[in-house]
Simulated assay, not measured.
Amino acid sequence: MPHDLVLKAMNSAHRVLRTVSGGHIGNEAMGMPVIELVTVGRKSGQERAVMLTSPLEEDGTIVVVASRGGDDHHPAWFLNLRDKPDVEVAYKGGPRRPMVASVATAEERARMWPVIAGKYRNYAGYQKRTDREIPLVLLKPVG
């Protein structure tokens, strides 16, 4: 798994590419829409933004995978939203919208995971690399 600094650099580069291209490049990756997820740091209390792919959407709910590339530890953004589920999401370069995050229930994950891992094999590979069950996060619009 890449070091945290490498992950942060990749996120920054992605954001710059999207900005410099006027949003024409960087709104999709590996056939999935890219979102910017903004959480509040559980320790710092400061806004934290990360670029993520969304392999599944259902009825206005955006699904993201807390895989961290198959690392044995949850990504920081997941820990942040687990503690403070009020987040903001910019979908495919659009404006930020308030959303509420929740971790998929066992039943939801059992239904969604085969769809996600079947279409995007990288996620199936990530799950094989770790003993932790990789969480799915549901991002639902407020209101």
Rank of each mutant, 00 (worst) to 15 (best):
A49S: 07
V100N: 12
G31Q: 04
K119L: 07
G45C: 01
P135S: 05
G26P: 01
P114N: 03
K43A: 11
L79Y: 08
M112D: 09
G70S: 10
V64M: 07
M10G: 13
P95C: 08
G22T: 11
E107C: 05
M99L: 05
L138Y: 01
G26K: 04
R97V: 14
K140E: 14
V6N: 10
L79F: 08
N80I: 05
E133H: 00
G31N: 04
L136I: 05
E57D: 13
V115T: 15
I134M: 00
G22H: 11
K84L: 09
D131H: 00
Y120Q: 09
E57S: 14
P2Y: 15
G69M: 01
V87C: 05
K84H: 14
R109N: 10
H73E: 15
A101R: 02
A101D: 03
N80H: 06
K128R: 14
D86P: 07
G60D: 01
S102Y: 09
A9Y: 07
N122C: 14
A101N: 03
D83V: 06
N122T: 12
V63F: 03
V103H: 02
A90D: 07
T61F: 03
I116L: 03
T39G: 02
R15I: 15
A9T: 12
K140P: 03
M112A: 12
A104G: 02
A66S: 02
L17Q: 15
S44Q: 03
A101S: 04
D59Q: 10
A66F: 01
L139H: 04
M1E: 12
A110V: 03
D4S: 12
H73W: 13
N11M: 09
L56H: 06
R111C: 06
V142I: 13
R97S: 12
G94H: 04
R15H: 14
P98Q: 14
V65N: 07
V65I: 07
A124R: 05
V89E: 01
L138F: 02
V87R: 00
A110Q: 03
P33L: 04
K92D: 06
V63M: 08
P98W: 05
R111I: 04
E107S: 11
L136H: 02
R96A: 12
I62D: 00
S12R: 15
K43G: 10
H3V: 12
V50G: 01
S102Q: 09
I116E: 03
G125F: 11
Y120T: 04
D83T: 11
M1I: 14
N27H: 13
R68S: 05
L56K: 04
V20K: 08
L81I: 07
T19S: 14
V6M: 11
V38D: 14
V87Y: 06
V103I: 06
G60K: 06
H14S: 11
L52M: 06
E108Y: 06
P33F: 05
Y123I: 01
D86L: 14
R96Q: 08
T130Y: 00
P75S: 07
V115D: 09
G143Y: 08
Y126Q: 04
L37D: 02
V115Y: 10
A104L: 04
L138R: 04
G45A: 02
V142F: 08
T130Q: 00
D83W: 08
V89S: 01
M10Q: 15
H74E: 13
Y120H: 08
P85R: 07
E28N: 13
K8H: 12
T53S: 12
L56S: 08
